[in-house]
Design a protein around this nucleic acid. Structure first.
Ligand SMILES: [Zn+2]
Ligand SMILES: [Zn+2]
Ligand SMILES: [Zn+2]
Ligand SMILES: [Zn+2]
Lengths: 129, 129
DNA sequence: CTGAGATTGACAATCGTTCTCAATAACGCC
DNA sequence: GGCGTTATTGAGAACGATTGTCAATCTCAG
């Protein structure tokens, strides 16, 4: 049975109020700084749950898991700035069908896919020029 | 100056003789079992070098880096069996141009992308049925 | 209100990976 | 072939992210 605790809610809100992807550690640090006394393990558990429930997107970069609040239920991918972390949600049916087709074509079943685009956003491109 | 050592060559060969993606640890274990006395750190370094040099593909799954020998210089993606690790190299210009376009469309520069398709290969699908 | 049991959090433990640094070995040069 | 410079190695320590442990706490159906 799933119970509602203020800790889980705090994590959900903190994630919602964050632009771009965050690590569990960063989010935890932010919560502590804001006066919340959540435990680190709890933040890890809450984020994993949110990702499971489809309320958050996750991706792994450089050996750590990053999370981001996301509109539940909609399948989409991300365009992420390597410098500031700004993120754009993108949908591309073409890619979806391509992934499904290429899997089927080789006899693969239960296909899933990882599709992420990284780069420098307009602002960071200018700044780094 | 880059020097050639039997250790690096051993790693290259071991990687070449492996089907699908392997972790540094697994490859190291295999080498040791085959009588080779390479150090773990060396395997990590060799794999990172190979990936840098474009002689190996890498992807991160479940918190660890996996490597696979690959035809140098050619950009491509993979279709990977979640059960046995069998891998098919796939190329899709449509995806390449899509990635470039979607980045440009949002003002992102220096675009890179991660595209991997996972599933159960024909054999494993049958076995797990 | 109450009790079963889900959840928490401090801490230890684990796991993949990188760092350190003395010993070794590769290779351009004579 | 020898020499010296210096990249490379490897054993172990150190590291950072994540997960496990388990008693104390909190949630909520009844
Ligand atoms: Zn940016
Ligand atoms: Zn998709
Ligand atoms: Zn398979
Ligand atoms: Zn590509």
């Amino acid at each position: 049975m799933r119970r509602n605790t203020w800790q889980r809610e705090a994590v959900r809100e903190a994630l919602g109020g964050t632009e771009g992807f965050v690590s569990a550690q960063t989010l935890h640090a932010g919560l502590r700084e804001a006066g919340s006394e959540v435990g680190l393990a709890t933040v890890y558990r809450a984020l994993a749950d949110l990702a499971d429930a489809g309320e958050a997107d996750s991706l792994q970069s450089d050996g750590e898991n990053l999370y981001r609040a996301c509109t539940p239920g909609s399948h989409h991918h991300h365009l992420i700035c390597r410098h500031c972390g700004a993120t754009v949600e993108i949908t591309a049916d073409a890619v979806e069908t391509w992934a499904r087709d290429v899997a089927a074509e080789h006899g693969f079943t239960a296909p899933q896919h990882v599709v992420d685009v990284f780069g420098y956003c307009a602002a960071c491109s200018r700044e780094l020029a």
